[in-house]
Simulated assay, not measured.
Amino acid sequence: MDLTALLTPDCTRRAVAGTSKKKVLETIGQLAAGRCSGVTGFDVFESLLNRERLGSTGIGLGVAIPHGRVQGATKPVAVLMTLSAPIDFDAIDNQPVDIIFALLVPEDQHEQHLQTLAAVAGRLNDKQCTRALREATSDMELFEIFTQCET
């Protein structure tokens, strides 16, 4: 899975002020809606929130991968952000989260959704990659680090 085809610089943000999981999901909705024609920020937020109700997408080591299928979306969209301060995300290791990669896919792309999640999780499980992401000093540097990390 070529993650660089999903993530664009305009959906990459460094040092976002997120005070709660809900606020972060709302921010993701606003960013992603700009790339999904016919989909609102609320549609994205609702999809992510519904998925979180099934169980946290905090995978541990300060990383969360919120994801969902969005009715009306025509292509997959990703959002990458680091937070200015870690937040509680109900992660599996009970540690706060400061790196978030959100994935939104059209409702009918179940298989691609799973393959992409696996690729993202592999990349964000690399401690060298996550260390570099945390040290990024600009949105563009964050984007470049993520797209250059090996899976």
Score class of each variant (00 low, 15 high):
21 K>P: 14
87 I>V: 12
74 T>E: 13
92 I>K: 11
52 E>M: 04
87 I>Y: 10
93 D>Y: 08
32 A>F: 13
30 Q>F: 12
121 A>M: 11
110 H>A: 13
21 K>F: 14
43 D>Y: 00
89 F>T: 03
73 A>F: 09
66 P>R: 07
39 V>N: 08
89 F>P: 03
33 A>Q: 13
73 A>V: 03
57 T>D: 06
30 Q>N: 12
50 N>S: 14
92 I>F: 10
124 L>T: 06
53 R>W: 04
57 T>M: 07
70 V>W: 08
47 S>V: 06
86 P>Y: 11
42 F>C: 01
98 D>Q: 13
106 P>L: 02
108 D>I: 11
127 K>R: 12
114 L>G: 00
75 K>A: 12
84 S>N: 10
112 Q>N: 15
127 K>L: 15
78 A>P: 06
27 T>M: 10
48 L>H: 00
118 A>F: 05
45 F>R: 00
97 V>F: 09
96 P>G: 05
32 A>H: 11
129 C>G: 09
30 Q>I: 12
87 I>K: 06
129 C>M: 08
119 A>N: 03
22 K>S: 15
111 E>D: 15
103 L>A: 09
64 A>L: 11
89 F>N: 02
96 P>C: 05
99 I>H: 00
65 I>N: 01
113 H>M: 09
121 A>H: 12
78 A>S: 12
57 T>E: 06
18 G>P: 14
47 S>I: 06
56 S>Q: 04
40 T>C: 03
94 N>P: 04
86 P>T: 09
121 A>V: 14
39 V>H: 13
45 F>K: 01
81 M>Y: 07
127 K>A: 15
20 S>G: 13
53 R>E: 11
34 G>T: 13
124 L>H: 05
69 R>Y: 04
29 G>V: 02
48 L>S: 00
57 T>L: 02
83 L>K: 01
86 P>L: 05
34 G>S: 12
84 S>I: 07
40 T>G: 05
59 I>W: 06
39 V>R: 11
55 G>R: 01
81 M>K: 10
23 K>R: 13
104 L>C: 12
88 D>M: 11
123 R>A: 08
25 L>A: 11
27 T>V: 12
123 R>N: 06
74 T>H: 08
77 V>Y: 11
38 G>K: 06
25 L>P: 06
61 L>K: 02
64 A>R: 07
